[in-house]
Amino acid sequence: MGVVRSATHGVLTGLVGPFGERFPGVSLAAREMNSLAQVEALGAGRLDVGFLYLPPDRGPGDLEAETFAEEPLVAVLPAYHPLADSRRVRLDAMFGEPFVVADRAREPGWNEQFREACKGHGFAPGVAVETTELLVALGFVAAGPAWRCFRPPSAT
């Protein structure tokens, strides 16, 4: 099975235990993969199941898709940020902030969902960095204003 990184923190943990109890003779081989790679591997028969963000421009075709879980959008802010101590941060309060987001080329579904959420709050996000690596994203956030000189990748 293919799994996007975010699924390993909740969705997968709630699934593996009950699956193992119900099917004790079945072994699982899980592989962390971005959504686009999972769609391709599922289509080619290299995966039996995938937990992913379905890309909006690529329907499942011969694949059966089902919403398994929904995740909240979470803001990660440097400690000195004025909103860092807030228990909840409204998305529109982030207008004008530089965003570090999932790479559009590898996670088009997540990226599109994020952009649509911002649009629903009346703004287009200023994307400064796109990455699929959580530690890279956290590093840019921790660096704060020092990385704001980076420009977003050109839209394709």
Rank of each mutant, 00 (worst) to 15 (best):
residue 22 R to H: 11
residue 93 A to N: 08
residue 130 E to P: 00
residue 39 V to F: 09
residue 75 A to M: 04
residue 98 P to L: 03
residue 132 T to F: 00
residue 108 P to Q: 08
residue 45 G to L: 08
residue 36 L to D: 03
residue 122 G to C: 04
residue 148 R to G: 03
residue 73 L to I: 15
residue 140 F to A: 00
residue 127 V to R: 06
residue 3 V to H: 08
residue 131 T to D: 00
residue 60 P to I: 05
residue 146 A to P: 07
residue 101 V to H: 01
residue 24 P to I: 05
residue 25 G to Y: 13
residue 148 R to I: 01
residue 77 L to A: 01
residue 52 L to A: 04
residue 134 L to E: 01
residue 102 A to P: 08
residue 85 D to M: 11
residue 4 V to Q: 06
residue 31 R to V: 11
residue 93 A to S: 14
residue 69 A to C: 07
residue 16 V to Y: 10
residue 111 N to H: 15
residue 120 G to P: 12
residue 136 V to T: 10
residue 48 D to A: 10
residue 43 G to W: 07
residue 26 V to T: 15
residue 144 G to T: 08
residue 92 D to P: 02
residue 19 F to L: 11
residue 10 G to C: 04
residue 132 T to A: 01
residue 126 G to S: 11
residue 124 A to T: 15
residue 49 V to K: 12
residue 133 E to V: 03
residue 9 H to W: 13
residue 109 G to E: 03
residue 4 V to L: 02
residue 37 A to F: 07
residue 112 E to W: 15
residue 54 L to N: 06
residue 143 A to K: 13
residue 104 R to E: 01
residue 67 T to Y: 09
residue 114 F to E: 00
residue 150 F to H: 10
residue 153 P to Q: 12
residue 27 S to V: 08
residue 56 P to M: 07
residue 80 Y to N: 05
residue 32 E to G: 01
residue 24 P to A: 05
residue 31 R to K: 11
residue 23 F to Y: 15
residue 42 L to C: 03
residue 43 G to A: 10
residue 86 S to R: 15
residue 152 P to K: 05
residue 72 P to V: 03
residue 121 H to E: 14
residue 35 S to N: 04
residue 87 R to Y: 09
residue 127 V to W: 09
residue 64 E to V: 15
residue 155 A to G: 06
residue 54 L to A: 09
residue 75 A to K: 10
residue 40 E to D: 14
residue 144 G to C: 05
residue 13 T to S: 14
residue 109 G to D: 02
residue 56 P to L: 09
residue 97 E to M: 03
residue 67 T to S: 11
residue 98 P to F: 07
residue 77 L to W: 13
residue 51 F to K: 11
residue 15 L to F: 15
residue 74 V to D: 03
residue 144 G to K: 11
residue 27 S to Y: 11
residue 117 A to C: 04
residue 143 A to V: 02
residue 103 D to S: 12
residue 106 R to A: 00
residue 151 R to H: 11
residue 156 T to L: 11
residue 30 A to D: 07
residue 98 P to A: 05
residue 37 A to G: 09
residue 42 L to R: 10
residue 114 F to H: 06
residue 108 P to E: 02
residue 84 A to R: 12
residue 43 G to V: 02
residue 94 M to E: 05
residue 82 P to N: 03
residue 113 Q to V: 04
